[in-house]
Design a protein around this nucleic acid. Structure first.
Lengths: 124, 124
DNA sequence: CTCTTATTGTAACGATGTTGCAATATTAAT
DNA sequence: ATTAATATTGCAACATCGTTACAATAAGAG
């Protein structure tokens, strides 16, 4: 069960690292790495998630984005959100902490916070 | 282009109203109303959204939930979240306001806030 | 170099949601 | 009540995203 170092893992991780705080969808990674099969990409991404190397977020239109966020080098448990700019289309992992006040008796295991709007680059 | 009153609309709206603050997936509505075609259900739900009668939220596993939230009789623009209990599986529309502080230059158009955890009913 | 087995590619599947089109049903007009 | 216009429906077929099964390949330990 010991993990192995492979070309696909190296290439996919590189893609995500180059994207920085911006997330990538599986199909974007696929188009950037035409040598690797779709299935391989999905499996490698899942193994990264299992290892806690990357994180995955569901977008408001039902597609997953994967992040090797630069700001998240150390594993972080805080409640941050992801921002999709409706103009440039980029999806950014934001470091702002979200304050969540659940009613009495509710406990939180996991969050998925998504915001769509206009980023500062596209705002004129 | 004038909308018509139909049996499917009546039945689907009733389903959602009975669910109260809890959301339903299309496939759940489908199983509750076996007389209507899948496609009809999707189209009716979309027309309700267009009319602003219901709202739709993406879950963290990529499926949409539809709400005719009792607390949202009047259209509301505040940033609320939805809570899925990992024990009972219910998805609840919460009225708590989420405080969002976006960086300078970012503007918000839309939000999708999802929290998974344990609800007060299931907490012992 | 050899062996074990983690990883890959192919193919095929599954779940969710959408589109085209002819048939049906609702509503307004007569 | 009849009729006409057209919104709505059901069927079939498609599209996308992600998963599973299984045989072939390749990483890395000895």
């Amino acid at each position: 069960m010991k993990k192995r170092q492979t070309k696909s893992k190296k290439a996919i991780l590189e893609c995500l690292q180059k994207a920085g705080n911006y997330g990538l969808r599986a199909d974007i990674i696929e188009s950037q790495l035409p040598n690797f099969d779709r299935v391989t990409i999905y499996r490698v991404l899942q193994s990264f998630i299992d290892d806690g190397i990357i994180h995955k977020v569901i977008s408001d239109n039902g597609k997953f984005y994967y992040f090797k966020c630069l700001k998240c080098e150390e594993v972080h448990y805080h409640h941050h959100y992801h921002f999709k700019c409706s103009i440039c289309g980029k999806v950014e992992c934001m470091e702002d902490e979200m304050e969540v006040k659940t009613p009495l008796g509710y406990s939180i295991e996991n969050v998925n916070f998504w915001i769509t709007g206009v980023c500062s680059n596209c705002k004129k």
